[in-house]
Design a protein around this nucleic acid. Structure first.
Lengths: 145, 145
DNA sequence: TGACTTTAGTTCGCACACGAACTATCCTCC
DNA sequence: GGAGGATAGTTCGTGTGCGAACTAAAGTCA
């Protein structure tokens, strides 16, 4: 009985994502960013754009993660000193979060790591191929909506 | 200050993978395959190809997962009755695993789900585009090795 | 044979990730 | 204003996933 790999593209995509995460972890470690993992990217990326503390609710909507997951990530990032939590003055149910100085300080590293990843992913692929790849990926992304 | 999404391709790829996993979970549930999650695909795919019990060690190598992770997955699949564990007669350190009848019985479902996913991913994309996409993905996969 | 090393699995602690249940606050509407 | 429902977070249980430490059984070699 012969068996082939199921869903070769998805397997390929999963593998690429894993390799990317591995590279990210390596780069983060190289920059001495302890306690930060690729999954925190969404959090930082969102918080970098905020001028003042935002409710956790906003992060839940933005990140696409479930409430309890966000609670966990916020707590670990708080534990490592990257962000702080304060009570919302207007709504006692709500908790506001914001970047500490330590949290703000990593923005440059964050961007550097992102760029390193982007460069490594594409390598010497010509621009028209990159464009084509993004388009084709957009198609299958839409197919899966 | 303006911030763009870091590594758009990787973000896109991560999103596709997540959507695919979501679809898989939906399809598994629709077929009443309780206790099985996408991550178990590697395990089943490997075990379907075996005629007799294999050491966990082999699954570790094949799956690309770490020993402790495999231990966990094997235990949950055993708990749900999809596979069994026996002591290896030749090497007392080794544990052999194999599919139970319940485990073997899902092979058809497994293939159906894989095909459903594959079809949904590609949709009506023409064959030459599919080919091109796989090629381009292979390039960035290699870039990240 | 007996010390040393390698190997196979398990266990533990941690973090992400989900869903379900829970608490506390707020809002609505009678 | 008070009952009922909506909303914001947390907590709990389960599972994947990792690394490190551990146990037990082989293998090595002097």
């Amino acid at each position: 009985m012969f068996k082939r790999t199921p869903s070769p593209i998805i397997a390929q995509i999963a593998k690429i994502r894993e390799s990317a995460n591995l590279l990210l972890e390596k780069e983060l470690l190289a920059r001495d960013l302890k306690g930060i993992v690729p999954a925190h990217g969404l959090v930082f990326c969102f918080l970098f754009r905020q001028d003042e503390p935002i409710p956790i609710k906003a992060l839940v909507q933005e990140s696409g993660r479930v409430k309890s997951t966000v609670t966990g990530m916020v707590n670990t990032l708080e534990k490592h000193g990257y962000l702080y939590k304060i009570e919302c003055p207007d709504d006692a149910r709500s908790t506001l979060i914001g970047l500490t100085e330590k949290g703000k300080a990593i923005q440059q590293d964050f961007e550097d790591v992102s760029e390193t990843l982007e460069n490594k992913v594409f390598g010497s692929m010509p621009p028209e191929d990159r464009q084509r790849l993004l388009e084709l990926l957009a198609v299958i992304e839409k197919n899966l909506d």
